[in-house]
Design a protein around this nucleic acid. Structure first.
Lengths: 142, 142
DNA sequence: TTGCGTGCAAACTTTTTGCATAAAG
DNA sequence: CTTTATGCAAAAAGTTTGCACGCAA
């Protein structure tokens, strides 16, 4: 487990289920739904329950270890690990094939500074997502 | 009703309920939940039903007249009118008082061009939201 | 031993659907 | 007249909660 996470978990009680949730999240490259976390862990440990996963996620969110990631299909909440500023992610979401493509670096920082200066808002986070068609979907109707 | 909207509605069947939903949306400066649309229209027309509002919103979304706006509290979906590129809005959301503050202009366009060039993604839309503390909340703990 | 974590089932909230009727074109 | 929109109630989908028991510290 990453140092950063262990640090945030200091003083909390460990559990097998929680460790499984965290290590699963660390393997994800894009946000994942609670139900999907549940299903994947169930393959290995088939007595875990969905509500337990919800409760674990709720606590990890309170500890700022995971966060909700708002995505195109908002029917289920999607979660991702909170990464440090150098590695946090934004996504391009293809409206045709629903592919989610990470954007390598965060292009928002300068904008933030700019806007913070103008407005006096103390900015602590942001959401930035692009929608459109990925290269392969776009090429199909040319 | 705006020209732009009438244009998109061309060829569809009108209804009192739909008109009420659209004109209510036009009065909103920030995204609104389906339930809230329902409640407000019910004051004027108390036999409208919630499922009707859901169905109207669903159709307006398919016509690209409204869109889901992802916000801080994702338990209910929030909707807003699709504005043309010159007037679409982004928001700063205060995590303390939940105030939603529109950002005057869209600072994302240059970023988009940049990223589209690098990746071949055909960008058709974006979501950009800032979180933090508004001036008055920030000043309280100084 | 004490209190937090867990599984299960039931409750709750938000959204969708089926069906009979009403209204629009 | 034909098709789409509507109201109501019921179902679905996602999430939260109550309770009794188990496990970490």
């Amino acid at each position: 487990m990453q140092n950063q996470i262990s640090e945030k978990l200091k003083g909390t009680r460990t559990s097998k289920n929680r460790n499984e949730v965290i290590s699963l999240l660390q393997k994800q490259s894009t946000p994942i739904a609670v139900e999907d976390i549940y299903q994947k862990i169930k393959c290995v440990n088939n007595k875990i329950s969905l509500s337990t996963v919800y409760r674990i996620i709720e606590k990890l969110a309170a500890l700022n270890i995971v966060r909700k990631a708002a995505m195109l299909d908002d029917s289920k909440a999607l979660y991702e690990l909170v990464k440090d500023e150098q590695t946090h992610h934004h996504y391009m979401i293809c409206v045709k094939c629903k592919k989610v493509i990470p954007i390598d670096d965060c292009p928002v920082k300068e904008l933030e500074k700019n806007i913070a200066g103008k407005t006096g808002f103390l900015i602590t986070g942001h959401k930035f997502e692009l929608y459109g068609e990925c290269q392969s979907c776009a090429s199909k109707h040319k």
